[in-house]
Amino acid sequence: MSSFIPRPEMIQNSGSTARDFCMLERNLLSHLKLALLLSLLSSSVLLRARLVQEDKPTDLSGTKGVVVASLQFAAALAAIMAGAWEYKCGYSDLRNMHAFLVAVKPHLGLMTLVSAVVFLTCIIVLAES
């Protein structure tokens, strides 16, 4: 039964291997935290939840609210995909002893889209209030 369980391959801890692996994990967790925050923001837009009650509620409901919430949720999924892609590429580079200080291009593209969605959401919320 134990012959079916793959044994983990040991990688020699030379130089900064352990620190680099911790960096990869920390980056993946940061992407997951960003995705969680974006999905929470998406839910709050759909439910029209506010931290501070206003006398005059904003009109971020209806079709515009659904579009903004959908963009935020898509950005959350893109952040998860970008984090997983960066982790996969970085881990394979770490195992093959390649330098991986430069982020991969799909990661940069996806995170640029996520940043654009966050910036667009800020503009829409400021314009509505």
Rank of each mutant, 00 (worst) to 15 (best):
F119D: 14
E128W: 04
A18E: 11
L126H: 07
L28Y: 07
L32G: 00
T121I: 10
C122Q: 12
F4D: 10
R50D: 10
S129A: 14
H98T: 11
L94E: 02
Q72E: 14
T112S: 15
L36D: 08
L77E: 13
K105Y: 08
A69R: 10
N27R: 10
R26H: 04
G62N: 09
T63R: 05
M111R: 15
R48S: 15
H98D: 05
L38A: 13
V104Q: 09
M81V: 12
S16M: 10
A78P: 01
T63E: 09
L71G: 09
Q12Y: 07
D55Q: 08
A103V: 12
S14C: 05
Y91D: 00
V118I: 15
L126W: 14
K64D: 11
S2Q: 11
P57I: 01
M1W: 11
A99H: 03
I5M: 08
F73V: 09
L108S: 14
G62W: 02
A127Q: 07
F73M: 10
G83D: 06
F100T: 00
L47S: 14
A84M: 11
L37M: 05
S92W: 04
S43C: 15
P8E: 02
D59W: 11
D59A: 13
R50W: 10
E54M: 07
S3F: 01
S92K: 06
A82I: 10
T58N: 09
L34G: 03
M111D: 03
M10V: 07
S70I: 00
L71E: 15
Y91M: 12
E25C: 04
I123N: 02
K33D: 08
M23H: 07
S129W: 12
V66Y: 06
Q12W: 02
N27V: 01
A18W: 02
P106H: 02
S2N: 14
S30N: 12
A69I: 14
K105P: 04
S3Q: 08
L24I: 07
S129N: 10
P106W: 00
V118P: 05
H107S: 04
R50F: 08
G90M: 00
M97Q: 15
T63K: 09
W85P: 00
L36V: 03
K33H: 15
F100S: 09
K105T: 05
V66C: 12
